[in-house]
């Protein structure tokens, strides 16, 4: 239906959207800054690759197992994160990213510098597109359910004020772990899709710079909002393709874009307090929503 190039870009963006949504749960909703999200993604991808190449598990059986294992590992890695707050947390997550990547790179079980290849995908490229699209939609539904549930309310109140949340009856530790578990479960999905789409993965794909890219997506789009996560993933996912003709300046433009956005639209393109959504609200002349703010 589309050219192979377009499909590849589209699938990549679909995977980025899932990653951005999952980080948005941890950082946007629960307020736990994670600068090591690519580590969780890598855990998902490696888990999926190993299940596929070593155990020969088919796609649909590997999928729930990958999600479960990644969610579990994510909540385990959240334990060191529970001891620390704010900037200590941010840097601890960078640390986790470097350590996880080093394990992939240096432990022979994970294929070392060669990575893992020969992952078999049962689908053609274009059916992979449709599958990714369906998963993105499923994640959107999941996200909408989450923000309207008591879990979502608990996560957001922890983001607003941990102490105030605790004296309102919220078990902060439990919900932080829940945020990391749900978020990394979704990165497990993203890792599974990525491994099967690329059919070859290596530790380089999941480094700290990738974490920054994912974080930039949600900040760029408007942190704490689903629409922001999706739009951010699309824009920053497409940008490298658009700027391909000026390859030499691509990274510079990317860095400049981040500075420019933070300086002039720090809430992101679609953040609740940003210009576009305000205009939109004005045009719609909608009375302010009573419960949710945006």
């Amino acid at each position: 239906m589309f050219g192979g190039y377009i499909i590849t870009v589209a699938v990549t963006i679909g995977i980025y959207i899932i990653l951005a949504m999952s980080l948005n749960i941890i950082t946007g909703y629960a307020g736990q800054i994670s600068l090591g999200h690519a580590a969780f993604w890598g855990i998902g991808a490696y888990c999926s690759a190993l299940l596929s190449t070593r155990l020969g598990l088919p796609f649909w059986i590997g999928l729930p197992m990958t999600i479960a294992i990644t969610a579990l590992t994510g909540s385990l890695l959240a334990i060191p994160c529970l001891r620390v707050r704010e900037d200590f947390l941010a840097i601890t997550t960078i640390g986790i990213n470097f350590v996880v990547q080093a394990v992939f790179l240096y432990v022979p079980f994970f294929g070392g510098a060669m990575g893992i290849g020969g992952i078999r995908s049962p689908f053609s490229t274009s059916s992979f597109f449709w599958i990714t699209l369906i998963f993105v939609l499923v994640c959107i539904v999941l996200d909408r359910w989450l923000v309207t549930s008591w879990i979502g309310l608990a996560l957001e109140s922890i983001r607003e004020d941990e102490t105030a949340a605790a004296i309102s009856g919220i078990d902060v530790v439990r919900f932080k772990v829940a945020a990391f578990a749900i978020g990394s479960g979704l990165t497990g999905l993203a890792g599974h899709l990525y491994a099967h789409f690329m059919t070859f993965i290596s530790a380089d794909d999941f480094g700290f710079p990738q974490s920054i890219v994912i974080l930039s997506m949600i900040v760029f789009g408007g942190i704490g909002t689903l629409r922001g996560a999706i739009l951010g993933a699309i824009i920053l996912g497409v940008a490298p393709e658009i700027f391909r003709p000026v390859l030499d300046y691509r990274t510079l433009i990317y860095g400049g874009l981040l500075i420019f956005m933070m300086r002039f639209q720090p809430g992101g393109i679609l953040g609740d307090q940003s210009v576009l959504p305000k205009l939109f609200r004005m045009v719609r002349q909608r009375s302010p929503a009573l419960v949710r703010s945006g």
């Binding site: 309310l153 004020d161 102490t163 703010s293």
Partner: peptide
Amino acid sequence: RPFGNFTVLKNVLV
């Protein structure tokens, strides 16, 4: 220390 970005109603719901 209210939940600053919540509406008043949502603060109570917590």
